[in-house]
Simulated scan of single mutants.
Amino acid sequence: NHKEGQSCDCAVLHSRHPVASFFHLFFRVSAIVVYLLCELLTSSFIACMVTIILLLSCDFWAVKNVTGRLMVGLRWWNQVDDDGRSQWIFEARKVSAQGSKASSEAESRIFWLGLITCPMIWVIFAFSALFSFKVKWLAVVIMGVVLQGANLYGYIRCKVGSRKNLTSMATSYLGKQFLRQTVAKDDQTAS
């Protein structure tokens, strides 16, 4: 029995957006499954390619426009100025006045796990297609890497901030590590 106030690791009980959580994984996992089983199911490369690209496109749209906003409160898009310059825009939902989050920890884990794992799988497929000389599949796999990689890049930038913030965070982290090592060495030599 799950009583109010008790914690439970069950993602379903903590999911505020179960449909979004389902579709966040459905399109990306379906594209991977179709890629793996396609040659067993049909001999038509074109049918497989179109199915996979449609699933990847649906995934890209759903993650970029719906699941990211609902599950983790992040949103990104690219806008072209009047001057023709491309500008990336990143948004993060503000925490409410009560300090409560609109998304659950389980949804956040599902979102980031799917967002990071699936592009890595497509990269493995790319190397596999390249080294096994399956050139016709390389275009499909590259499409998977590009579409899912773009979402991953966009959401990492949303989460971490602009490139300037990312660079300053990395510099700050490395500086702290260097300081810790220096202090630890000084402590060891003083002992």
Results as ranks from 00 to 15, higher is better:
161 G>A: 08
167 T>D: 13
176 K>I: 13
156 I>M: 15
187 D>A: 15
68 G>F: 00
78 N>W: 01
93 R>L: 13
53 I>H: 00
51 T>L: 13
24 H>G: 01
133 F>G: 11
71 M>V: 01
14 H>R: 11
123 V>H: 05
175 G>F: 03
46 I>M: 14
2 H>A: 15
5 G>H: 02
139 A>K: 01
185 K>E: 14
95 V>D: 09
117 T>M: 13
101 K>C: 11
100 S>N: 13
35 Y>G: 14
97 A>G: 13
124 I>Y: 10
108 S>T: 11
8 C>L: 07
178 F>Q: 12
120 M>S: 15
175 G>M: 07
6 Q>W: 00
74 L>E: 14
84 G>D: 05
96 S>A: 15
133 F>N: 13
124 I>H: 02
126 A>S: 13
80 V>N: 07
183 V>E: 10
100 S>P: 00
144 G>Y: 07
65 N>V: 07
190 A>H: 01
146 V>H: 02
167 T>M: 10
104 S>T: 03
179 L>W: 08
188 Q>W: 11
32 I>V: 15
25 L>Q: 10
135 V>E: 05
98 Q>Y: 00
66 V>N: 14
54 L>Y: 05
152 L>F: 02
185 K>D: 12
176 K>S: 09
4 E>Y: 09
146 V>K: 02
162 S>P: 03
165 N>D: 12
124 I>T: 10
25 L>E: 04
73 G>Y: 01
176 K>C: 11
142 I>D: 06
74 L>C: 05
117 T>Y: 08
160 V>S: 09
41 L>N: 07
13 L>R: 05
122 W>N: 13
125 F>R: 07
180 R>G: 09
72 V>K: 07
84 G>P: 06
28 R>I: 11
125 F>N: 11
180 R>S: 14
39 E>P: 01
161 G>T: 04
187 D>I: 08
157 R>T: 04
153 Y>V: 06
21 S>H: 02
167 T>E: 08
161 G>F: 02
88 W>I: 05
132 S>V: 02
172 S>L: 14
70 L>T: 05
29 V>E: 05
57 S>D: 07
54 L>Q: 08
69 R>Y: 09
59 D>M: 03
5 G>I: 00
156 I>A: 14
147 L>I: 01
55 L>E: 03
119 P>Q: 06
118 C>Q: 04
83 D>Y: 05
2 H>P: 00
190 A>D: 12
84 G>Q: 03
136 K>S: 14
60 F>D: 10
138 L>C: 04
170 A>L: 06
3 K>C: 10
85 R>G: 05
83 D>G: 10
111 F>S: 06
165 N>T: 09
191 S>Q: 08
121 I>N: 08
140 V>G: 10
145 V>C: 14
65 N>D: 06
155 Y>W: 00
70 L>A: 15
149 G>F: 02
111 F>L: 07
103 S>Q: 09
127 F>M: 14
93 R>C: 09
12 V>P: 00
